[in-house]
Structures are given as C-alpha cells and as structure tokens.
C-alpha cells in the first residue's frame, strides 16, 4: 500500500499597512491626468488619445494591484516558503537554499518597480542590499530579508518571530 504524506502548508499574514491607499491615490492621479486632456481638447485630439492610451492601462493596473492587496501572504510548506500577491507574484524560496535570514532597514535608490510607503512589490534595487524581490507591506523599514545563493527576498510577516521560528523548525526537519 502506498502512503502519501500530507504536505501541510501554514499561511502567515503580512504586517498591516495602508499601502493600498497609495495604489488607489496613484490610480486616481494618473487617471485624472489621462482624462483631463480628452475633456478639454475632445477625444479627436491626437494628444488626448495618446495620453488616454498610456494612462488608462496604468490606472487599471494600479487599481487591480490595490484590489489584490488583501491576498498578500507567506506560505510555509515542507520544502519552501512561497510569497504570494494575487496571481502576479509567486516567489518560491526553497528552504534548503536559504543562507541567511535577517531583519534590516533598507536604503533607497531612485529606481523602483512598485514601492510606496506601506507596499513594495517585484524586484527593487536597494542601496544597501542590491536587488531584492519584494512582497512586503513596508518599502524600507524592518524588512525580513531572506537570502539564497541566487536571490534576495524581502517580506514583512505580521508575527515575525513566529514566522522565523516556524521556518527554522521546518528547516531542521
């Protein structure tokens, strides 16, 4: 008889933040800037059309990201930590590949993907850590940095000590 071991997955929530407000604010500003020329010049204007063509997808993207904000979570399975944000982020960190886990305040560079107060997503270059794959509710402060040989990941579990203890326990199994 073949016995299949159940792969239990524990899910951890991120620290609460108002990062979603920034996404909505940005969506509103970009949307307003996109619609205003069309209102003023009419939709026949080439300028108004180009502006709409650029601003509408960006506005929609920010709104969708804000909608997915509550789906941010960190899953711990027997083999890996999985960082999730809607369907757009699924970072899988194999436990056996983890070299360091530390909490750190990161320093900014001008370059970014999605980084606002209270939210940081995707790959972001930091001054004191290099490129970090972020799935966090903080842009700079108290980031739990998990480093593997190839990548660095930034996350912000709500109960950091419990999360780290669970990861360490799973690594020792």
């Amino acid at each position: 008889m073949e016995i299949q071991l159940a792969d239990t997955v524990r899910s951890f929530k991120p620290r609460p933040s108002y990062g979603w407000c920034w996404l909505i604010l940005l969506a509103v500003i970009i949307g307003a800037l996109g619609i205003a020329p069309a209102l003023a010049l009419g939709i026949d204007s080439t300028n108004a059309r180009i502006t709409l063509l650029i601003s509408v997808p960006v506005t929609v993207a920010f709104l969708i990201l804000a909608f997915w904000f509550p789906t941010m979570r960190y899953e711990l399975s027997r083999e890996a930590i999985i960082l999730r944000y809607g369907p757009v982020i699924t970072y899988r960190i194999l436990l056996k590949e983890i070299r360091t886990i530390r909490r750190k305040n990161l320093t900014m560079t001008i370059w970014s993907s999605i980084r606002f107060p209270g939210i940081a997503l995707f790959k972001i270059p930091y001054g004191n850590a290099g490129e970090v794959k972020m799935c966090a509710t903080s842009a700079l402060n108290n980031i739990l940095l998990i480093e593997t040989e190839k990548e660095k990941y930034g996350l912000t579990p709500d109960n950091e000590e419990e999360f780290v203890a669970a990861v360490r326990a799973q690594m020792e199994v």
Binding site: I101, N105, G127, N128, V164
Partner: peptide
C-alpha cells in the same frame, strides 16, 4: 557622494546564517 555610514546606520538582526 554616498555616505557609507548610511548603510551601517540601520540596525540589523540576524536570525539565521549558514
């Protein structure tokens, strides 16, 4: 013009290293 101290100012807690 980056001040090297900026990087070191942030306190760091190492939970695990191997």
């Amino acid at each position: 013009v980056y001040d090297a101290n900026e990087a070191e100012n942030s306190h760091e807690i190492v939970y695990m290293r191997r």
